[in-house]
């Protein structure tokens, strides 16, 4: 009997407390910047694609929902020929973001991806690519890599010496 009364009292008290429910979708839920939602592909500061098609995200994906094909332009800069994420399989674990060595793949605070048809949850590169550097502004992988892929010449990168003169025998 006491327990019943106590319950009624608690419920009554809640009438005067702040509401936890929000009027979604009119009212948006506050999401933190590191919230792991929809996956995007970001761009380098020079506007080029950040993804170099290294396949690490695909290998890290526990549900194998990422498929891509790497290719390269005449300068040797790599980019994905196609990049496909099957969001009907994605579990938003963020392993792909963790694996990405170029900060290309990022999970952003957006989860509103519901579709009526499951097929529409298959995102191609055009759907994934955003015109932004995402969480890591100013980073360009090719500046720290040894490769000359049209971004910087050999020896011009961060912490690189000028190329060796192979004809020289000087110490």
């Amino acid at each position: 009997m006491i327990s019943h009364l106590r319950t009624m009292w608690l419920v009554f008290r809640h009438l005067f407390m702040k509401k936890a429910t929000i009027q979604y979708p009119e009212e948006k839920v506050p999401l933190y910047p590191r919230w792991r939602g929809r996956i995007v592909l970001t761009k380098d500061p020079d506007g080029g694609e950040r993804c170099v098609g290294c396949y690490l995200c695909a290998a890290a994906c526990p549900v194998d929902c990422i498929a891509l094909q790497a290719t390269e332009n005449e300068e040797g800069r790599r980019y994905p020929e196609f990049f496909r994420i099957n969001f009907s399989r994605c579990i938003f674990c963020g392993y792909c973001e963790e694996a990405c060595p170029t900060y290309a793949i990022q999970l952003i605070p957006d989860f509103e991806m519901a579709e009526y048809k499951r097929q529409d949850l298959v995102y191609e590169k055009e759907d994934l690519l955003i015109n932004s550097e995402g969480k890591y502004p100013g980073y360009n992988f090719y500046n720290v890599a040894g490769l000359d892929a049209g971004v910087k010449e050999k020896g011009k990168g961060k912490d690189e010496e000028t190329p060796v003169d192979i004809k020289s025998l000087l110490p």
């Binding site: 290998a59 929902c65 496909r84 499951r118």
Partner: peptide, 16 residues
């Protein structure tokens, strides 16, 4: 055992 893309490589044709 690291083969990737199993659930996405053909998803452009049909998601199943």
């Amino acid at each position: 055992h690291r083969y990737s893309g199993r659930t996405a490589m053909l998803a452009n044709m049909t998601v199943s």
